[in-house]
Simulated scan of single mutants.
Amino acid sequence: MAQNINWSGKPWHESEPLECAMVVPDVADTATFTFRAPSGAWFDYQPGQFITLDLPVDPARGAAGNVQRTYTISSSPSRPLSISITVKAQPGSIGTRWMLDHLRPGMRLKAYGPGGLFSFHRHPAQKYLFISAGSGITPMMSMTTWAWDSGQMPDITFVHAARRPSAIIFRERLEQFANRVPGLRLRFTVKEPDPFRAWAGYQGRLSQIMLGLMAPDYLEREVFCCGPEPFMQSVREMLVSLGYNMDRYHQESFGAPARTVAEMPVHDDVVPDADSSASILFAASGVSATCSQTDTVLAVAKQSGLNIPSGCTFGLCGTCKVRKLSGDVHMVHNGGISEDEVAEGYILACCSVPIGHVSVEV
């Protein structure tokens, strides 16, 4: 039954505790917690922002047992009578595990915020590309819901990576949106399909080739990215190598959402410089060659009269795999090499460029 609530007509302030109104399970170890203000205050924030909850993880110890955890708001301010967060427990989770096991409707929590700079309201554009992985989908859900509720046709390509189809948070809700508006295009990729369930979508690590197929006009889109740091670093490297204007790239961190401009991370990603010199020693052949940081190992080998077997030449087939003996390379591949092989010192010659002096076993 619907409850009678005397809406106050004023915005919620963090001085008022939030009351849990509803808990909705999602995928494994994941649930959406919806809160409201006991006073009837409404919620005003930007889609993509976060709140911080004070969680009594050990109630027997009182306030001394509380921990504070930051969660992105998964609801939209276009629906201001409540506010929702969607949380997924990771190995070793403390606050999130407590929420999943103990937080129930009627309980009240101290909350701080909303805050954060990760919102497409701060970067208006005609076309957007949302890229997320795991629970990094939550701010994208908030922004997509706002776009849906705005009454204007959105132009959003929504790319999401998950372990398997059954782990895609909000999948049914997003598909309901996309089924009704052509301007929202969903592109999912998974590490592996669910057993005994056919999967017709993308499979494998998000790559340059995959991104080009998912969003052919990515150069025209404002990009928002959220997920684990290795995932976001991979996305940044892909976009840089594809010539994307990184001034239009925005990301949110799992661990430390930025509250102010000063807190926004400075990415120290390697960007090869065509004007910087490098050199490659092909150890087995005894050949040494100078080059620039944007020349691939494969191209330098061919120019030096050496043969490294190759196939696709864009990091997919793995034919040009060689062992690096020393030095550093910058490699942006499309799945033709495994993390274990990289750890053993192997590189793909077709998509590896030397940073300084490099020696390879050729």
Rank of each mutant, 00 (worst) to 15 (best):
A289L: 08
A262H: 09
A256S: 12
V270N: 11
T260A: 06
V261A: 10
S279R: 11
M264G: 02
Q251K: 07
T294L: 03
A256V: 07
A262M: 11
S285T: 12
T290P: 01
A283G: 02
V270W: 04
P272D: 00
S285Y: 04
R259T: 01
D275G: 13
E252N: 04
D275A: 15
E252Q: 11
G286Q: 08
V261E: 13
S277Y: 04
F254I: 09
V266A: 05
D269C: 09
A283Q: 06
V266M: 06
R248C: 03
V271R: 05
V271E: 01
R248D: 03
M264K: 11
M264Q: 13
F282L: 02
P257Y: 00
F282Q: 00
T260R: 13
T294F: 00
A278T: 14
G286A: 07
R248Y: 02
C291G: 03
D269K: 03
P257W: 00
G286E: 05
G255A: 09
A284K: 15
S253D: 04
C291H: 00
R259L: 03
P265S: 02
A283I: 02
F282P: 07
E263M: 11
V266R: 07
A283K: 05
A256H: 10
S253A: 13
A258Q: 09
D269N: 12
A274Q: 14
S285A: 15
T290V: 10
V287Y: 01
Y249Q: 06
V266Q: 07
